[in-house]
Design a protein around this nucleic acid. Sequence first.
RNA 1: GGUGCCGUAGGCAAAUCGGUAAAGCCACAGGUCUUUCAAACCUGUGUUUGCGGGUUCAACUCCCGUCGGCACUGCCA
Length: 482
Amino acid sequence: MSVRVRLAPSPTGNLHIGTARTAVFNWLFARHQGGKFILRIEDTDLERSRPEYTQNILDGLTWLGLNWDEGPFFQSQRLDLYREKIHILLEKGLAYRAYDTPEELDAMREAQKAKGEAPRYDNRHRYLTPEQCAAYEAEGRSAVIRFMIEDDREITWTDLVRGKLSWKGRDLGGDMVIARAASAGDIGQPLYNFVVVVDDIDMQISHVLRGEDHIGNTPKQILLYEALGATVPTFGHAPLILNQSGAKLSKRDGVTSIAEFQQMGYTAEALANYMTLLGWSPPEGMDEIFLLPGAAEKFSFDRVNKAGAKFDWDKLNWLNSQYLHQMPSNQLLELLLPYWQAAGYEFDAVGDRPWLEQLVDLIKPSLTLLQDAVEMSRYLFVAQLDFSAEATTQLQQSGTAAAVQAILTTLESYQPLTSEGIQSLIKQVTSEHHLKKGLVMRSLRAALTKAMHGPDLAQSWLLLHQHGWDRSRLEAALEIAG
RNA sequence: GGUGCCGUAGGCAAAUCGGUAAAGCCACAGGUCUUUCAAACCUGUGUUUGCGGGUUCAACUCCCGUCGGCACUGCCA
């Protein structure tokens, strides 16, 4: 049987890191097995589903490189199929109409809780006579469709990551609602647990790979597969991604949507790499830094961990920096341009290309996030920049003025300035004026970059020089210097 | 409350059928390099596998109990 897996996100929010990680596992599994990865949008909740969320999900998956082979399919367009299946269950006597009002159900659950019992539907409408049904309908009541779950059933399956799992029918909460209320003889909006099964059967899904939060749904769904006369697929439940305090990572924990990670300057490769590591560990001998296709070659659920994984920003950041450091400069430049543009820096992306590439080479080893490039290169883009407090202090130290003056004077004979020129200029200044190299360098840094920390000074100077900014900065520094 | 899952160093984790635990990565500390910060490189700290029993020559691995965490428990997905 061919391997077919699917990702079934609901468009009630932006693509979430948890959903994306599930997507990664599905994609990896499909690629490893030579199977198909299908995308299905679960928009059965008409109230909360939004087209912009669907777009966000599609964009996020695409950005991450998680291309799908079929779809996207939309459940909202498949209602006829669901109705048809519900009719079949109704006719087989496996499902029935229940006329309870929400208030009655609430009261029932309250009473159960008061008695210290687990809240569940007591199946009170399971065997209503046609007369009783008619009476309720005459009252104007609408009915949900409930699927019968026998208390004494035992549902067992072998989970790809957890092994043999077993559930008792009585712990499933009573007969489950598979379609929302609708008036007289109609069938309302079909619900998630039912729709998923119908679709997975229809799309011949062979492996259902999802988050651990769906474990409790699995026995109900298995019952539905049986009722619909279908083969039960293989299930695999991956551990959840946890926040710092160990709870399921949610929107409340700050950044959790893929689009936000993207904006902050994480690369798709690093994020995908990190998400894979959240629950899966590469086999012996395989590096932890890998691209999705490489991981696909080795991926198997044998190596998916059972325990939830805490999200670790430090490690993600480290991974991202690794990708950035290894990236060819011209490629990195393309990623950086939008950040500089957004910061309002003025430059000619085409004409300044050689200069920009030198800049990328300069800051690349220090980047963690693409966003970092904005602050890191500000002194090279912004002409009018205040001296930092530290730089001012440095400039006012004795000897600094002399050093800056000496550099300014010596600079005359080094036009145009080159890398080698800078080195020999500094040598010349230190020896002719009997200045310590450290002082010269610190003075230079303060004057040129207006800060005491930053990328390589000689290269910075060169870039400044190419913009014709070095002389004016040295002169400005002189005014401040004691 | 009920049901289920999980529990190896600060974090991610490895340890194929029970056979010397903590490989590797992040973080942290120190060092090297250097004009600074970062990067890079080197070295190092951290444990007795939540706890208590049991089976066994041998238990992170199996069994029982216990504690803790989390998930689910909806006419949401």
